[in-house]
């Protein structure tokens, strides 16, 4: 399959700041690709390089096999949903959605019909005559989406698309975006700092840190097998086991990650199944989170969080507790 977007050793420097530092990346056509990272990690700059708002300092970018350097945004078959939606305040919702068509010289009746069609797709039909200022945040988000999609882009870029929405709306929009991507089959590339959003929506995730991609792969891959301490910590806050601790509990003498939900509580002298190991430590905090309870245990100098089903709970702060995990759940990783 053809690559929708291809980065070859791309860098973008702002003075001394290396916002994007030697990034190579291939995004296949039809992928739902997430760029995940903390703020200032270079993910948004990567998106802006694809949109054409930034030009690379060095390296080569291709969009569907065409060289993108030097190509202005208005010559690219790529559309963006902006973080602040960037709706035109002096136009109605319908005019906003039809804007790209108007620029391309589509006749009025035709573009109005297409705008209504696009608004239907995002469940906002009947809103064409309103002003953006009369809409809620979630509705503006949908208008921004319709305004991009009406142009039938080959790649849709989404910059923190759900960042400004409240939790419930965010979950709903996640499902809708996923369904929309499947239905349209176009490449979605979205930037987020929310690991839950990236894991639940994307086919593939790239984790950014300090201008570089530190790991890329399927969400389950990145989640289960973080390659570095940064990824383990950033994607779902895994426990980081020191090399000594890992070696004492059946692993190699390397840093390892251990997911909090892989841990279960055990009795002090319990006979564990084969392949399991256990440790004992002091409970330093217990927090009830509804379906699960998060227990933090200090054991042999390691701070280990465990997520256990709430009904299992008979412990409180200051108790000594034994906990167990399958050895295979402790995944070795680089020290970084």
């Amino acid at each position: 399959m053809q690559n929708a977007v291809s980065f070859q050793h791309v860098s973008r420097h702002f003075g001394a700041v290396r916002a994007v530092d030697d990034v190579s990346l291939d995004i296949a056509e039809g992928e739902f690709f997430a760029m995940l990272g903390p703020s200032g990690s270079g993910k948004t700059t990567c998106l802006r390089l694809i949109a054409g708002f930034e030009q690379p300092t060095s390296g080569h970018i291709e969009i569907f096999g065409t060289t993108a350097e030097g190509l202005p945004p208005y010559r690219r078959n790529v559309n963006t949903v902006f973080q602040d939606y960037a709706l035109f305040p002096h136009m109605t919702v319908g005019e906003n959605v039809a804007y790209g068509l108007m620029i391309r010289g589509v006749a009025r009746a035709e573009r109005e019909a297409q705008a209504i069609e696009a608004l239907k797709m995002v469940k906002l039909d009947g809103f064409q005559t309103r002003r953006p200022s009369q809409l809620s945040g979630g509705q503006r988000q949908r208008v921004a989406l319709a305004r991009a999609l009406v142009n039938k882009p080959r790649v849709l870029l989404l910059d923190e698309p759900l960042g400004a929405l409240d939790l419930k709306l965010r979950e709903q929009m996640q499902d809708e975006l996923k369904a929309l991507q499947k239905q349209l089959g176009i490449t979605f590339i979205f930037v987020t700092h929310d690991q839950g959003e990236a894991l639940s929506m994307a086919n593939r995730v790239a984790i950014f840190n300090e201008g570089k991609i530190v790991q890329a792969g399927a969400p389950s891959d990145v989640y289960e097998r973080p390659r570095s301490r940064f990824v383990a910590d950033f994607v779902g806050s895994a426990n980081v086991l020191t090399p000594d601790f890992n070696a004492r509990h059946g692993g190699e003498k390397t840093w390892a990650s251990l997911r909090p939900e892989k841990i279960r509580l055990a009795l002090p002298k319990e006979k564990l199944p084969t392949g399991w190991t256990s440790a004992t430590g002091l409970v330093t905090s217990v927090s009830y989170q509804g379906a699960v309870t998060r227990i933090v245990i200090t054991s042999e100098g390691n701070r280990i969080a465990a997520m256990v089903p709430a009904r299992d709970l008979t412990t409180s702060e200051g108790d000594t507790l034994t906990f167990a995990w399958p050895r295979s759940a402790a995944v070795a990783m680089e020290d970084a």
């Binding site: 949109a51 054409g52 708002f53 202005p72 945004p73 208005y74 790529v78 559309n79 963006t80 902006f82 973080q83 602040d84 960037a86 709706l87 035109f88 804007y99 790209g100 620029i103 391309r104 305004r147 991009a148 142009n151």
Partner: peptide
């Protein structure tokens, strides 16, 4: 806002448009 100008370019408008 600067993003409005970027959005316009993103939707295919030349600087003149």
């Amino acid at each position: 806002p600067k993003t409005l100008i970027e959005a316009s370019a993103d939707l295919g408008a030349t600087p003149g448009q």
